[in-house]
Design a protein around this nucleic acid. Structure first.
Length: 258
DNA sequence: ATGGCTGAGCTACTCAGA
C-alpha cells in the first residue's frame, strides 16, 4: 500500500497538479496539508472521478488537512486534542495493514515564526498537546503512523544552512527537542532510519531562487511507531512536483507499507 | 537578508507562510 504525504499550499489552486501527480504516483492514500479552504469548497468531485474518497478538515483561507483514499477509512477523527486557536491542523483515521489496525495521523504543525511571540507559544503548546495526545493513543494502539508537515528541522543536516535557522521556529533546539521527545515515545523518523546521512529536502521557498539553488529543508516527515516499522518497505522524497508549473513549495514523501 | 514569491479574500491590500 502506497501512502503519500504532501503539503499542497492550497488544494484549489493545485487541483490540476495534484490530479496529474496522482495519475503518475498512483497512491492508495494521499494525505494533504495546507488545503486552505473550508470543507464546502473542497474539490470532492474531481477526486471522486478518479476513484478517491475525501475526508476533509478545512477552514477558511488558512491551514486545513485532508485524507484522500481509494478505500474506505474508518473512525475519522478531527479532534485528537483541543486546538488553542481552533485551527484545522489534524485529521486521523483507521486502516488495516495485514493483521494490524493502523491509526493514521495527518498533521500540519504551526509554523511558529517569529520566535518569542504568541505564534511561537502557540506552536510550542500545540506540540505539547500533540505529544500528550499521541502518548495516550499509543496506549490504545501500538500501530501509529504520523505523517505531515511538522515544520521542524530535526537535525542540522536537514537544512541547507543551519546557522540561518538555529534561532528560527523551525530549527531552534527547543523545537528539535519536541521532535526527539516524540521519537522517544517509540517512533522512528522513517526517512532518517532508511537514509542515515543523506541530504534531501521536502521544502524550498518560492523566493530567492531557492529551488534552483537547492536552498531547501526537510520538514515533512513520516513517523512510524516501533511496532509498525517492520511493515514499511520504502520511503522516497519525490522532487518532481516541485519542478512543475505553479508548484506547491513542498514536495511529496512517498511511503510503501504492507 | 524580518524579506526576494505565492495564495486567499477580495477587487486594494493585508495576512500568512518557512
Amino acid at each position: 500500500m502506497k501512502i503519500i504525504s504532501w503539503n499542497v499550499n492550497s488544494v484549489r489552486a493545485r487541483v490540476d497538479n495534484i490530479l496529474s501527480y496522482i495519475s503518475r504516483a498512483k497512491p492508495d492514500m494521499l494525505l494533504l496539508q495546507e488545503i486552505k479552504t473550508q470543507d464546502e469548497n473542497f474539490p470532492y468531485e474531481e477526486f471522486k472521478k478518479i476513484g478517491y474518497s475525501s475526508y476533509v478538515h478545512g477552514q477558511k483561507s488558512y491551514n486545513g488537512v485532508a485524507i484522500l483514499s481509494k478505500n474506505k477509512v474508518k473512525n475519522i477523527n478531527r479532534n485528537l486534542f483541543k486546538d488553542d486557536l481552533n485551527q484545522s491542523r489534524i485529521i486521523t483515521g483507521e486502516i488495516q495493514i495485514k493483521r494490524k489496525k493502523v491509526e493514521l495521523i495527518n498533521i500540519y504543525v504551526p509554523n511558529g515564526n517569529p520566535v518569542d511571540t504568541e505564534k511561537y507559544e502557540y506552536k510550542k503548546n500545540w506540540l505539547k498537546k500533540f505529544i500528550t495526545g499521541i502518548k495516550k493513543r499509543l496506549q490504545e494502539n501500538p500501530n501509529l503512523l504520523i505523517a505531515g508537515d511538522f515544520n521542524i528541522i530535526p537535525e542540522d543536516i536537514d537544512v541547507y544552512d543551519f546557522k540561518r535557522y538555529e534561532n528560527d521556529a523551525l530549527g531552534r533546539l527547543e523545537i528539535q527537542k519536541k521532535f526527539r521527545e516524540l521519537l522517544n515515545l517509540g517512533f522512528y523518523d522513517v526517512y532518517r532510519l532508511k537514509y542515515k546521512n543523506k541530504i534531501e529536502y521536502t521544502f524550498w521557498d518560492y523566493f530567492a531562487n531557492s529551488w534552483a539553488k537547492n536552498y531547501g529543508m526537510r520538514i515533512d516527515h513520516f513517523l512510524s511507531s516501533n511496532n509498525l516499522i517492520e511493515n514499511i518497505s520504502s520511503i522516497n522524497i519525490n522532487k518532481s512536483p516541485r519542478s512543475k508549473i505553479k508548484p506547491s513549495d513542498h514536495t511529496p514523501i512517498e511511503l510503501e507499507i504492507n
